[in-house]
């Protein structure tokens, strides 16, 4: 597993995938749709897929002493690694905003979505959509990525828009909780987001292995 990840880092990853991880800290920005940070992280990941295609990485990997499903596994490991790094930053930013900065006026007067556990749950969902729609779509051909990325962008921004809008509806104000308000439901929403991420990623990985096994390189 480590060998696969190391290969991704050394040969096929774009530097932008790493440079875009700090966009997770956009969770600190007041008056800005914080989930855009998630999209920027996936934009960095997209660059690695572009790089992989331009350098014939998939064909090269398929010739290594690996089963074909391991080539797919390498890409998913890399993607999940970057996502988890960004999620750690987002989680840290959310935790700071929910504790130390819970009463900060700049965040209290923020009209947009608050960076809380619900937002973090949605970040998991958007990353899950990236893995499912984009990475899964890429492995249908192992070279076409424009269509899957466009579909992902639409699904990501619909999710982002829904996240930003939901707390404005009567009865759903708790989604925009400050500090530890509604902490039980916040944690439940985070757990739900995490489960959706796991489910989308796992199903997409299995489907990608099947597709990749069938395609001719």
């Amino acid at each position: 597993m480590l060998k696969l990840l190391r290969k991704e880092f050394r040969l096929s990853a774009s530097i932008l995938s790493f440079l875009f991880i700090p966009f997770g800290l956009m969770f600190f920005l007041p008056g800005y749709p914080v989930l855009c940070g998630v999209f920027f992280v996936t934009l960095g990941l997209f660059q690695s897929f572009q790089n992989a295609r331009e350098t014939n990485d998939i064909l090269f990997s398929a010739l290594l002493p690996l089963a074909k499903r391991d080539v797919v596994k390498g890409k998913y490991l890399f993607v999940c690694f970057i996502e988890i790094c960004a999620l750690i930053l987002m989680g840290a930013a959310a935790a700071v905003r929910m504790t130390v900065l819970a009463d900060s006026e700049v965040y209290r007067s923020n009209a947009l979505m608050n960076a809380n556990f619900f937002a973090l749950g949605l970040a998991f969902v958007i990353f899950g959509l990236f893995n499912s729609v984009f990475v899964g779509g890429f492995f249908k051909t192992a070279y076409k990525f424009a269509g899957p990325f466009l579909t992902y962008i639409i699904s990501a921004f619909v999710t982002l828009g829904a996240g930003e809008a939901l707390h404005c509806f009567p009865g759903l104000e708790f989604l925009n909780a400050f500090g530890t308000d509604n902490i039980g439901i916040q944690l439940a929403l985070l757990a739900a987001g995490f489960l959706i991420y796991l489910l989308l990623t796992y199903i997409s990985f299995k489907k990608s292995c099947r597709y990749f096994e069938r395609i001719d390189l």
Binding site: R10, L11, S12, T55, N56, D57, L59, F60
Partner: peptide, 12 residues
């Protein structure tokens, strides 16, 4: 086919 055209042989 070119593999990783910008990588050095030793890196590959």
């Amino acid at each position: 086919v070119n593999w990783y055209p910008r990588k050095k042989i030793k890196e590959i």
